[in-house]
Design a protein around this nucleic acid. Structure first.
Length: 363
DNA sequence: GCGAAAAGTATGAT
DNA sequence: TCAAGCATACTTTTCGC
Protein backbone atom coordinates (compact mmCIF):
# COMPACT_ATOMS: atom_id res chain seq x y z
CA UNK A 1 0.00 0.00 0.00
CA UNK A 2 1.18 3.55 -0.64
CA UNK A 3 2.04 5.90 2.17
CA UNK A 4 0.06 8.50 4.03
CA UNK A 5 2.28 10.77 6.08
CA UNK A 6 1.09 13.29 8.64
CA UNK A 7 3.39 16.11 9.66
CA UNK A 8 2.65 18.03 12.84
CA UNK A 9 4.34 21.36 13.47
CA UNK A 10 3.65 23.27 16.68
CA UNK A 11 2.79 26.94 16.14
CA UNK A 12 5.50 29.40 17.32
CA UNK A 13 6.27 26.79 19.93
CA UNK A 14 8.51 28.51 22.51
CA UNK A 15 6.56 31.76 22.41
CA UNK A 16 3.24 29.90 22.55
CA UNK A 17 4.32 28.10 25.71
CA UNK A 18 5.35 31.39 27.29
CA UNK A 19 1.95 32.86 26.38
CA UNK A 20 0.23 29.91 27.93
CA UNK A 21 2.22 30.27 31.14
CA UNK A 22 1.51 33.99 31.35
CA UNK A 23 -1.84 34.85 29.72
CA UNK A 24 -1.15 38.57 30.13
CA UNK A 25 1.24 38.17 27.18
CA UNK A 26 -1.55 37.26 24.77
CA UNK A 27 -2.06 39.83 22.06
CA UNK A 28 1.34 41.37 22.75
CA UNK A 29 4.46 40.81 20.65
CA UNK A 30 6.53 38.09 22.34
CA UNK A 31 10.13 37.35 21.38
CA UNK A 32 12.00 34.38 22.84
CA UNK A 33 15.75 34.98 22.66
CA UNK A 34 18.98 33.07 23.03
CA UNK A 35 21.25 35.55 24.74
CA UNK A 36 24.98 35.45 24.18
CA UNK A 37 25.93 37.45 27.25
CA UNK A 38 27.59 40.09 25.05
CA UNK A 39 25.97 43.28 26.24
CA UNK A 40 22.36 43.60 27.27
CA UNK A 41 20.87 42.62 23.93
CA UNK A 42 23.49 40.35 22.37
CA UNK A 43 21.96 37.22 20.93
CA UNK A 44 19.52 35.89 18.37
CA UNK A 45 15.78 35.46 18.17
CA UNK A 46 14.75 31.87 18.66
CA UNK A 47 11.00 32.22 18.15
CA UNK A 48 8.53 35.06 17.99
CA UNK A 49 4.75 34.97 18.16
CA UNK A 50 2.59 36.16 15.28
CA UNK A 51 2.05 39.60 16.77
CA UNK A 52 5.82 40.13 16.84
CA UNK A 53 6.10 38.80 13.28
CA UNK A 54 3.82 41.61 12.13
CA UNK A 55 6.72 43.91 12.97
CA UNK A 56 9.12 41.79 10.94
CA UNK A 57 10.66 40.03 13.93
CA UNK A 58 11.63 36.47 13.06
CA UNK A 59 13.86 33.53 13.96
CA UNK A 60 17.59 33.94 13.57
CA UNK A 61 17.54 37.70 13.65
CA UNK A 62 19.78 39.57 16.13
CA UNK A 63 17.83 40.53 19.26
CA UNK A 64 19.14 44.08 18.96
CA UNK A 65 17.46 44.34 15.58
CA UNK A 66 14.22 42.96 16.99
CA UNK A 67 14.24 45.66 19.64
CA UNK A 68 14.58 48.33 16.99
CA UNK A 69 11.65 46.85 15.08
CA UNK A 70 9.47 46.97 18.17
CA UNK A 71 10.85 48.41 21.41
CA UNK A 72 7.62 47.51 23.21
CA UNK A 73 7.82 43.80 22.51
CA UNK A 74 8.22 41.37 25.42
CA UNK A 75 11.66 39.74 25.35
CA UNK A 76 12.10 36.47 27.19
CA UNK A 77 15.08 34.11 27.51
CA UNK A 78 14.69 30.55 26.22
CA UNK A 79 13.76 27.87 28.77
CA UNK A 80 14.77 24.84 26.77
CA UNK A 81 14.38 22.17 29.46
CA UNK A 82 10.85 23.29 30.16
CA UNK A 83 9.90 23.30 26.48
CA UNK A 84 11.35 19.81 26.18
CA UNK A 85 8.97 18.55 28.85
CA UNK A 86 6.01 20.00 26.98
CA UNK A 87 7.38 18.51 23.78
CA UNK A 88 7.63 15.04 25.31
CA UNK A 89 4.00 15.18 26.33
CA UNK A 90 2.93 16.18 22.82
CA UNK A 91 5.10 13.55 21.16
CA UNK A 92 3.36 10.93 23.25
CA UNK A 93 0.05 11.93 21.68
CA UNK A 94 1.48 11.82 18.19
CA UNK A 95 3.14 8.46 18.68
CA UNK A 96 -0.18 6.99 19.77
CA UNK A 97 -1.71 7.87 16.40
CA UNK A 98 0.97 6.24 14.26
CA UNK A 99 0.54 2.85 12.60
CA UNK A 100 3.12 1.53 15.10
CA UNK A 101 6.14 2.68 17.08
CA UNK A 102 8.39 2.39 14.05
CA UNK A 103 6.12 4.77 12.15
CA UNK A 104 6.81 7.75 14.35
CA UNK A 105 9.66 10.17 13.66
CA UNK A 106 10.39 13.22 15.77
CA UNK A 107 12.52 15.63 13.76
CA UNK A 108 12.87 18.50 16.20
CA UNK A 109 11.58 19.70 19.54
CA UNK A 110 8.28 20.73 17.96
CA UNK A 111 7.82 18.65 14.81
CA UNK A 112 7.17 15.04 13.95
CA UNK A 113 6.04 12.75 11.16
CA UNK A 114 3.73 9.81 11.54
CA UNK A 115 2.82 7.19 9.00
CA UNK A 116 -0.90 6.36 9.07
CA UNK A 117 -1.50 4.40 5.87
CA UNK A 118 -2.51 1.27 7.77
CA UNK A 119 -4.65 3.01 10.37
CA UNK A 120 -6.47 4.80 7.58
CA UNK A 121 -6.47 1.98 5.10
CA UNK A 122 -4.98 4.25 2.45
CA UNK A 123 -7.77 6.80 2.71
CA UNK A 124 -6.72 10.48 2.77
CA UNK A 125 -10.08 11.64 4.13
CA UNK A 126 -9.57 9.37 7.10
CA UNK A 127 -6.11 10.90 7.54
CA UNK A 128 -7.68 14.35 7.58
CA UNK A 129 -9.98 13.31 10.40
CA UNK A 130 -7.05 11.78 12.21
CA UNK A 131 -5.20 15.08 11.87
CA UNK A 132 -8.17 16.94 13.30
CA UNK A 133 -8.23 14.50 16.19
CA UNK A 134 -4.57 15.14 16.91
CA UNK A 135 -5.09 18.90 16.92
CA UNK A 136 -7.97 18.51 19.32
CA UNK A 137 -6.03 16.30 21.70
CA UNK A 138 -2.99 18.60 21.80
CA UNK A 139 -5.28 21.53 22.50
CA UNK A 140 -7.03 19.70 25.32
CA UNK A 141 -3.89 18.33 26.92
CA UNK A 142 -1.44 21.19 26.45
CA UNK A 143 -3.56 24.17 25.41
CA UNK A 144 -1.42 24.73 22.34
CA UNK A 145 -2.22 24.83 18.64
CA UNK A 146 -0.36 23.20 15.80
CA UNK A 147 -0.42 23.04 12.04
CA UNK A 148 -0.89 19.72 10.33
CA UNK A 149 0.01 18.56 6.84
CA UNK A 150 -1.07 15.32 5.22
CA UNK A 151 0.62 13.99 2.10
CA UNK A 152 1.80 10.88 0.26
CA UNK A 153 5.35 11.33 1.64
CA UNK A 154 7.36 13.33 4.17
CA UNK A 155 8.33 16.09 1.76
CA UNK A 156 4.74 16.88 0.80
CA UNK A 157 3.41 16.47 4.32
CA UNK A 158 6.02 18.89 5.64
CA UNK A 159 5.24 21.46 2.97
CA UNK A 160 1.51 21.00 3.46
CA UNK A 161 1.74 21.82 7.15
CA UNK A 162 3.35 25.16 6.25
CA UNK A 163 0.48 26.00 3.96
CA UNK A 164 -2.02 27.15 6.58
CA UNK A 165 -0.38 28.54 9.66
CA UNK A 166 -1.14 28.85 12.46
CA UNK A 167 -3.71 26.28 13.54
CA UNK A 168 -4.11 24.90 10.02
CA UNK A 169 -4.73 21.53 8.42
CA UNK A 170 -3.85 20.86 4.80
CA UNK A 171 -4.33 17.61 2.92
CA UNK A 172 -2.52 17.01 -0.34
CA UNK A 173 -3.56 13.77 -2.00
CA UNK A 174 -1.33 12.18 -4.65
CA UNK A 175 -3.60 13.66 -7.29
CA UNK A 176 -2.99 17.20 -5.98
CA UNK A 177 0.79 17.02 -5.66
CA UNK A 178 1.70 18.41 -9.05
CA UNK A 179 -0.57 21.44 -8.77
CA UNK A 180 0.57 21.99 -5.22
CA UNK A 181 4.19 22.24 -6.31
CA UNK A 182 4.33 23.68 -9.79
CA UNK A 183 4.18 27.42 -9.07
CA UNK A 184 6.20 27.42 -5.87
CA UNK A 185 9.67 28.83 -5.50
CA UNK A 186 12.42 26.26 -4.99
CA UNK A 187 13.12 27.79 -1.59
CA UNK A 188 9.76 26.48 -0.45
CA UNK A 189 11.01 22.93 -0.92
CA UNK A 190 12.02 21.40 2.37
CA UNK A 191 15.82 21.11 2.21
CA UNK A 192 16.40 24.05 -0.10
CA UNK A 193 17.92 27.02 1.70
CA UNK A 194 19.58 30.27 0.70
CA UNK A 195 22.69 28.76 -0.87
CA UNK A 196 20.80 26.32 -3.06
CA UNK A 197 18.23 28.95 -4.01
CA UNK A 198 20.94 31.37 -5.15
CA UNK A 199 22.63 28.75 -7.30
CA UNK A 200 19.35 27.69 -8.88
CA UNK A 201 18.56 31.29 -9.67
CA UNK A 202 21.91 31.63 -11.41
CA UNK A 203 20.83 28.73 -13.58
CA UNK A 204 17.61 30.57 -14.38
CA UNK A 205 15.44 28.25 -12.31
CA UNK A 206 12.83 30.23 -10.42
CA UNK A 207 9.97 27.79 -9.89
CA UNK A 208 9.59 24.21 -8.76
CA UNK A 209 7.93 23.48 -12.08
CA UNK A 210 11.03 24.62 -13.93
CA UNK A 211 13.18 22.58 -11.60
CA UNK A 212 11.09 19.49 -12.22
CA UNK A 213 11.61 19.72 -15.97
CA UNK A 214 15.23 20.83 -15.88
CA UNK A 215 18.09 18.70 -17.10
CA UNK A 216 19.28 16.21 -14.49
CA UNK A 217 22.84 16.31 -15.83
CA UNK A 218 23.20 20.04 -15.32
CA UNK A 219 21.71 19.71 -11.84
CA UNK A 220 24.22 17.03 -10.93
CA UNK A 221 26.90 19.19 -12.47
CA UNK A 222 25.99 22.11 -10.23
CA UNK A 223 25.08 20.30 -7.01
CA UNK A 224 26.80 16.93 -7.09
CA UNK A 225 25.28 13.53 -7.68
CA UNK A 226 23.27 13.17 -4.52
CA UNK A 227 21.83 16.64 -4.12
CA UNK A 228 21.37 17.09 -7.88
CA UNK A 229 19.18 14.05 -8.28
CA UNK A 230 17.40 14.79 -5.02
CA UNK A 231 16.42 18.24 -6.31
CA UNK A 232 14.92 16.84 -9.48
CA UNK A 233 12.91 14.24 -7.60
CA UNK A 234 11.77 16.63 -4.89
CA UNK A 235 10.52 19.06 -7.52
CA UNK A 236 8.37 16.25 -8.88
CA UNK A 237 7.00 15.55 -5.44
CA UNK A 238 8.89 12.29 -5.17
CA UNK A 239 10.36 11.40 -1.79
CA UNK A 240 10.95 7.81 -0.81
CA UNK A 241 12.58 8.40 2.55
CA UNK A 242 10.64 6.37 5.10
CA UNK A 243 9.12 7.58 8.33
CA UNK A 244 11.42 5.89 10.79
CA UNK A 245 11.86 6.02 14.48
CA UNK A 246 15.07 7.71 15.53
CA UNK A 247 16.92 6.34 18.47
CA UNK A 248 17.91 9.80 19.57
CA UNK A 249 20.47 12.09 17.99
CA UNK A 250 23.75 10.77 16.62
CA UNK A 251 25.74 13.57 18.20
CA UNK A 252 25.61 15.60 21.37
CA UNK A 253 27.02 19.11 21.41
CA UNK A 254 27.18 22.39 23.28
CA UNK A 255 28.42 25.70 22.03
CA UNK A 256 28.69 29.13 23.62
CA UNK A 257 29.83 32.65 22.93
CA UNK A 258 32.95 33.84 24.77
CA UNK A 259 32.59 36.95 26.94
CA UNK A 260 34.91 38.67 24.46
CA UNK A 261 36.78 37.66 21.34
CA UNK A 262 40.02 36.12 22.41
CA UNK A 263 42.85 33.73 21.62
CA UNK A 264 43.87 33.37 25.24
CA UNK A 265 43.89 29.79 26.45
CA UNK A 266 43.25 30.87 30.02
CA UNK A 267 40.07 32.65 29.02
CA UNK A 268 38.81 29.98 26.64
CA UNK A 269 39.56 26.73 28.46
CA UNK A 270 37.29 27.36 31.47
CA UNK A 271 34.38 28.03 29.12
CA UNK A 272 35.17 24.87 27.21
CA UNK A 273 35.35 22.98 30.46
CA UNK A 274 31.83 24.03 31.40
CA UNK A 275 30.50 23.01 28.01
CA UNK A 276 32.23 19.66 28.36
CA UNK A 277 30.45 19.21 31.67
CA UNK A 278 27.08 19.87 30.04
CA UNK A 279 27.87 17.41 27.28
CA UNK A 280 28.92 14.73 29.73
CA UNK A 281 25.69 15.23 31.66
CA UNK A 282 23.67 14.65 28.51
CA UNK A 283 25.83 11.65 27.64
CA UNK A 284 25.16 10.09 31.04
CA UNK A 285 21.43 10.86 30.77
CA UNK A 286 21.28 9.03 27.48
CA UNK A 287 23.48 6.26 28.89
CA UNK A 288 25.79 6.28 25.93
CA UNK A 289 29.52 6.50 25.40
CA UNK A 290 31.32 8.30 22.59
CA UNK A 291 34.31 7.71 20.31
CA UNK A 292 34.66 11.06 18.55
CA UNK A 293 35.52 14.35 20.20
CA UNK A 294 35.19 17.55 18.19
CA UNK A 295 36.28 21.04 19.08
CA UNK A 296 34.19 23.67 17.31
CA UNK A 297 35.65 27.12 16.82
CA UNK A 298 33.90 30.15 15.40
CA UNK A 299 36.44 32.87 14.79
CA UNK A 300 35.82 36.60 15.04
CA UNK A 301 35.16 36.69 11.29
CA UNK A 302 32.28 34.20 11.86
CA UNK A 303 33.97 31.34 10.07
CA UNK A 304 33.50 27.90 11.60
CA UNK A 305 36.37 25.49 12.01
CA UNK A 306 36.46 22.08 13.65
CA UNK A 307 39.18 19.88 15.06
CA UNK A 308 38.45 16.28 15.71
CA UNK A 309 39.93 13.30 17.52
CA UNK A 310 38.86 9.67 17.47
CA UNK A 311 39.39 7.60 20.60
CA UNK A 312 40.64 4.02 20.74
CA UNK A 313 37.47 2.96 22.48
CA UNK A 314 34.18 4.55 23.43
CA UNK A 315 34.13 6.28 26.80
CA UNK A 316 31.85 8.53 28.84
CA UNK A 317 34.25 10.24 31.19
CA UNK A 318 34.54 13.93 31.76
CA UNK A 319 38.27 13.82 32.42
CA UNK A 320 39.05 12.12 29.13
CA UNK A 321 36.84 14.54 27.23
CA UNK A 322 38.50 17.49 28.94
CA UNK A 323 41.95 16.17 28.20
CA UNK A 324 41.33 15.81 24.48
CA UNK A 325 39.60 19.17 24.18
CA UNK A 326 42.56 20.76 25.95
CA UNK A 327 44.93 19.21 23.42
CA UNK A 328 42.78 20.15 20.43
CA UNK A 329 42.44 23.72 21.66
CA UNK A 330 46.15 24.08 22.38
CA UNK A 331 47.06 22.89 18.91
CA UNK A 332 44.43 25.16 17.37
CA UNK A 333 45.75 28.20 19.20
CA UNK A 334 49.30 27.40 18.11
CA UNK A 335 48.27 27.19 14.48
CA UNK A 336 45.80 30.08 14.29
CA UNK A 337 46.11 33.75 15.09
CA UNK A 338 42.54 34.97 14.52
CA UNK A 339 40.58 35.68 17.68
CA UNK A 340 37.86 33.22 18.66
CA UNK A 341 34.28 34.39 19.16
CA UNK A 342 32.46 31.19 20.03
CA UNK A 343 33.66 27.81 21.20
CA UNK A 344 31.97 24.44 21.25
CA UNK A 345 32.19 20.74 22.03
CA UNK A 346 30.64 17.84 20.23
CA UNK A 347 30.82 14.13 20.81
CA UNK A 348 29.76 11.52 18.29
CA UNK A 349 30.14 7.86 17.48
CA UNK A 350 27.68 7.20 20.26
CA UNK A 351 27.17 3.69 21.57
CA UNK A 352 24.70 2.34 24.05
CA UNK A 353 26.34 1.62 27.37
CA UNK A 354 25.39 -2.02 27.75
CA UNK A 355 24.73 -2.16 31.45
CA UNK A 356 25.85 -5.71 32.02
CA UNK A 357 24.70 -5.68 35.63
CA UNK A 358 21.16 -4.70 34.74
CA UNK A 359 21.01 -7.32 32.05
CA UNK A 360 22.48 -9.96 34.29
CA UNK A 361 20.09 -9.25 37.11
CA UNK A 362 17.21 -9.39 34.68
CA UNK A 363 17.92 -12.97 33.69
C1' DG B 1 45.58 2.36 -5.97
C1' DC B 2 41.68 0.85 -3.28
C1' DG B 3 37.92 1.02 0.25
C1' DA B 4 37.11 2.50 4.80
C1' DA B 5 37.59 5.61 8.45
C1' DA B 6 38.54 10.06 10.06
C1' DA B 7 38.55 14.92 9.58
C1' DG B 8 36.54 18.89 8.08
C1' DT B 9 32.89 21.82 5.69
C1' DA B 10 28.27 23.25 4.08
C1' DT B 11 23.67 23.71 4.89
C1' DG B 12 19.27 24.22 7.07
C1' DA B 13 15.41 25.24 10.44
C1' DT B 14 14.06 27.35 14.73
C1' DT C 1 24.74 46.08 10.80
C1' DC C 2 24.47 42.40 13.55
C1' DA C 3 25.11 37.96 13.88
C1' DA C 4 22.60 31.79 18.88
C1' DG C 5 23.09 27.10 19.33
C1' DC C 6 21.99 23.15 17.65
C1' DA C 7 22.07 18.70 14.27
C1' DT C 8 22.75 16.33 9.87
C1' DA C 9 24.39 15.52 5.22
C1' DC C 10 28.03 15.85 2.33
C1' DT C 11 33.02 16.24 0.73
C1' DT C 12 37.86 15.87 1.28
C1' DT C 13 41.82 13.83 3.40
C1' DT C 14 44.22 10.23 5.60
C1' DC C 15 44.97 5.44 6.84
C1' DG C 16 45.95 0.52 6.30
C1' DC C 17 46.87 -2.69 3.22
Amino acid sequence: MSHIVVHVDMDYFYAAIEEREDPSLKGRPVVVCMYSGRGEHGGSVSTSNYTAREYGIKSGMPCSRAIKLNPDAVFLPVRKEFYTEVSDSIMEILRSHADNDESFEQISIDEAFIEVADNCNGDFECARKLGEGIKQKILEKEHLTCSVGVGPNKLIAKMASSENKPDGLTVISPHDVKQFLVDRTPSQLWGVGDVTTARLEQMGIKTVGQLASSDIVSLIDAFGKKKGSWLKKAAQGIDESPVRQREGSEQIGRIATLPENSSDYHLIMPVLDNLAGDVIRKVIERSVSFRQVTLIVITSDFKTQTRNHTLQRAVAEKEILRQHLDKLLTIFLEENKTDIRRIGVRVAGLQEVSSQTTLASYF
